[in-house]
Every structure is written in C-alpha cells, then in structure tokens.
C-alpha cells in the first residue's frame, strides 16, 4: 500500500480518528520503509482507548508504529514540525491528485 492508500484506509476504518489530530511521518512518506509511523495527538481517556482498538484492527495487515501524544507534549517537543508530520487527510488527498 502507498502512503495515500494507508491514510485512506485508516481514516475509513477508524471513526474515532475524527476526535484527534492524526499525522503520518517518517520513511513511509518517502517510500517503503520498515514500518508506518503515525502520530496521534489528543487527550487520554475512553476515546483514546476506543481509537487504539480501532487502529489495532485496522493495522492487522500493516506494520503500524503509532505514537500517541498529549497536546502539551506535542507543543513542548514541537514534534509535528520537527518530524515533518503530514496530516492523514492531506496524505490521502495528495495521493488522489
């Protein structure tokens, strides 16, 4: 699967993603890579537990490596900018163009 296909698959399979900011980063954006790096930013709690279950099911045939961050952790580390993370929605749209 390409990065765009993976993004579309995750967005289509995981309804709870709407409650979070989700990004792709790392080697999958540039080619095949060892695994698929995903960043999820949002609060902990029941919604996150639900999302983890959905992502586990969606990743049955994918080597997903998912990093979950609280918004404060993302702000402090500036992770999105530093790692050149791209929103899943944009990854999907870019692949469709």
């Amino acid at each position: 699967m390409t990065a765009g296909e993976i993004a579309a698959h995750l967005l289509g399979s995981c309804r709870s993603l709407k409650q979070f900011d989700a990004y792709m980063f790392g080697s999958t954006l540039r080619g095949i890579g060892e695994d698929v790096d995903i960043l999820v930013v949002g609060s902990s709690g029941d919604a996150l537990s639900q999302l983890k279950q959905e992502l586990q099911a969606a990743g049955e045939f994918l080597p997903l490596h998912i990093l979950y961050m609280l918004p404060s952790e993302e702000r402090r580390t500036n992770f999105v900018t530093r790692e050149k993370c791209v929103q899943l929605g944009l990854v999907m749209v870019a692949a469709e163009i």
Partner: peptide
C-alpha cells in the same frame, strides 16, 4: 526505548 517517552507510553 522512545527518545522522548510520553505519558501514553508509560500508561501503555
């Protein structure tokens, strides 16, 4: 093993 372990990594 994370570079910057976060709260979720500890809880998980």
């Amino acid at each position: 093993a994370d570079y910057e372990p976060n709260a979720d990594a500890v809880r998980s």
